[in-house]
């Protein structure tokens, strides 16, 4: 569906060049919600703008749904863009137009007849839950409502791909969740491929199937979201994962725990998918002559299944403890041991 091959994007003259996107290879399957996460300045926006030709790569090529975005221009590119919609962090609505007129704008661009534009706009207003507000101006709407208009506008020309550049970063947590739910339902109902940029792992966890992690212009890690939560390889990925699984700084938590629980050893377990529901702990306690206390635990729901972490304190015979940890390994539970 979407293919990037050896894509480089440099800004500026050769003496002051900034490489915003550096040697990126990426394949995004049709119908997926694909997340791209990275810190500020990682090159996420530049990367997503390459997908609709708002930027052209310095090297490499970009293909979206069979169209070589990186080598077409003019009318052909404009037509391709009608099928690659975009929503924005700051919504970018036209303040001079009402909700309905904003939504019909892309249809005007595509040359759709007035009656059809009106019909389509009404449908979309219904879909995004803005019925009754069609004649309001953007200034009369809340942030969440503005983004709903942005989404309706993006869907007007029945796009194949929806690009979201930090679409929820300007919204509060509850509104963010509502918008993410809307995107999920659009993805399921319309089979639309969604590429989503964010710096919040929460967003990735909640709605993405797959994810790419970006750092300094490079894609450093890609994969299934659950997989990535289970076994993040790169340090930056681990940091992003801990955003969701450990509300506080992991090391600090562990050392505090150490102070509070000086005995035995502390083990951090990561459960993935099915196993979160399996009674691993119960059998651990039953089968090994050790004391197990749960110090902290949480579970996060991803689209591919649940992912949880738990910090245990194991006290008792060292040999039995070692065996218990061995047992956890055999059960496929990832564990990290913190010795004294």
């Amino acid at each position: 569906m979407i293919q990037l091959s050896n894509v480089n994007k440099r800004f500026g003259t050769s003496s002051t060049a900034i490489t915003a996107v550096d040697g990126v290879n990426l394949t995004i399957q049709e119908g997926k919600i694909y997340g791209i996460i990275g810190y500020s300045g990682a090159g996420k926006s530049t990367l997503i703008r390459l997908l609709n030709g708002l930027e052209q790569p310095t090297e490499g090529f970009v293909e979206v749904n069979g169209r070589k975005i990186s080598s077409i221009g003019g009318r052909e590119l404009r037509q391709a863009r009608q099928k690659i919609s975009m929503i924005f962090q700051h919504f970018n609505l036209l303040w001079s137009r009402t909700v309905k007129e904003n939504i019909t704008f892309p249809l005007e661009i595509a040359g759709v007849k007035k009656a059809d534009r009106e019909r389509k706009a009404s449908e979309l207003i219904e879909l995004v839950g803005l019925a009754g507000r069609e004649n309001a101006y953007p200034s009369q709407l809340s942030g969440g409502q503005k983004q709903r208009v942005g989404i309706a506008r993006a869907l007007a020309n029945d796009p194949e791909v929806l690009l979201c550049d930090e679409a929820t970063s300007a919204l509060d947590p509850e509104t963010t969740d509502a918008i993410l739910d809307l995107l999920t339902s659009i993805n399921e109902r319309l089979g639309l491929t969604i590429v989503l940029i964010t710096h919040e792992m929460h967003v990735i966890r909640k709605i993405c199937h797959e994810v790419a992690v970006m750092e300094a212009g490079r894609v450093v890690e890609t994969g299934d979201v659950l997989q990535l939560f289970q076994s993040p390889k790169e340090p930056i990925t681990k940091r992003f994962v801990s955003q969701v699984t450990e509300p506080e700084d992991a090391k600090k938590v562990m050392s505090l725990m150490r102070q509070d629980y000086p005995d035995g050893i502390l083990v951090k377990l990561a459960f993935v998918g099915e196993r979160t529901e399996q009674p691993v702990l119960a059998s651990l306690i039953r089968e090994y002559p050790i004391d197990v206390s749960i110090l902290q635990g949480n579970i996060s729901q991803t689209r591919g299944g649940a992912y949880g972490t738990m910090i245990l304190q194991l006290t008792g015979d060292p040999e039995a403890t070692a065996k218990a940890i061995q047992y956890l390994h055999e059960q496929g539970v990832q564990s990290e041991v913190y010795e004294k």
Binding site: L54, R81, F88, N92, F105, E108, I109, N157, L163
Partner: peptide, 22 residues
């Protein structure tokens, strides 16, 4: 707002559309 111009471009608007409608 530059974002609005970018939005129009991302929708495939021609220059004349951008001038007269944005």
């Amino acid at each position: 707002d530059k974002g609005v111009l970018e939005a129009a471009r991302s929708m495939g608007a021609k220059t004349s559309t951008i001038i007269f409608k944005v």
